[in-house]
Design a protein around this nucleic acid. Structure first.
Length: 203
DNA sequence: ATTAAGATGCGCT
DNA sequence: GCGCATCTTAATA
């Protein structure tokens, strides 16, 4: 059962990031279905420096973030990787949740094919650039309505608070003091969570 | 017009 | 653990 619009328009982005843990992210691309359980997310908001739309900065790229919650924000990172975000809050407020890792549950074969891998280990989806490749998410999926049937979210599993870990976000050292915000959510001891390589976090 | 840097991943050591 | 690929975006001139 797909998540409704009201799930996404909630006005506290960290709460949506928490709620997305355990939800199922599904795609139907080129007639191939694949899906995974979200195990790691990060919240981003116009009020802090790690966000592309910090200080309400409006550009061609960030216009997606200012739209009403319930659509995707896909952008190219380091010229190579496509990162998938869920836009939240009402129109005019730039906030989103980055999906950093999933645990594959359906369409494992097509995921392996898209990733060019011969194994079903954590290499498949344990990182923000990996899961988009595995699910077939591309730039053309920017601004997509997540309540429709190309990229969408489903109910998934209940994940208790005491099994969720909060930590600083990955790769945002340029954000100065905002790099310290505990806006990263992940399932404790889940092997599909990204490596947690914090080398660029505090410096 | 030019340029610096980035919400990463991979391969090599 | 380290270096690099790769290219768009946005700031500066």
């Amino acid at each position: 059962m797909k998540l409704k619009k009201s799930f996404f328009t909630h006005d506290v982005v960290t709460e949506v990031a928490r709620s997305l843990i355990g939800k199922k992210l599904c795609t139907q691309v080129n007639n191939e279905y694949s899906a995974g359980i979200i195990v790691e997310t990060e919240a981003y908001s116009e009020v802090e420096r790690a966000c592309h739309a910090f200080n309400r900065r409006k550009t061609k790229r960030t216009e997606t973030l200012f739209m009403e919650g319930g659509i995707s924000y896909v952008y190219l990172c380091y010229g190579i990787h496509k990162l998938f975000n869920v836009v939240t809050n009402k129109s005019g407020v730039a906030e989103a949740v980055l999906v950093r890792a999933i645990e594959p549950v359906e369409g494992l074969d097509i995921m392996m094919e898209r990733r060019g891998l011969a194994t079903k280990d954590r290499q498949l989806t344990s990182g923000p650039g990996k899961l988009t490749q595995a699910l077939g998410i591309d730039m053309e999926h920017d601004k997509q309505d997540l309540t429709q049937d190309t990229v969408w979210l489903e109910k998934g599993l209940i994940v208790k608070d005491d099994t969720i870990e909060r930590s600083a976000r990955i790769g945002v050292r340029y954000a100065e003091e905002d790099a310290l915000l505990p806006w990263r959510f992940s399932i404790k001891n889940n092997s599909w969570v990204s490596s947690g390589d914090n080398k660029y976090n505090f410096k």
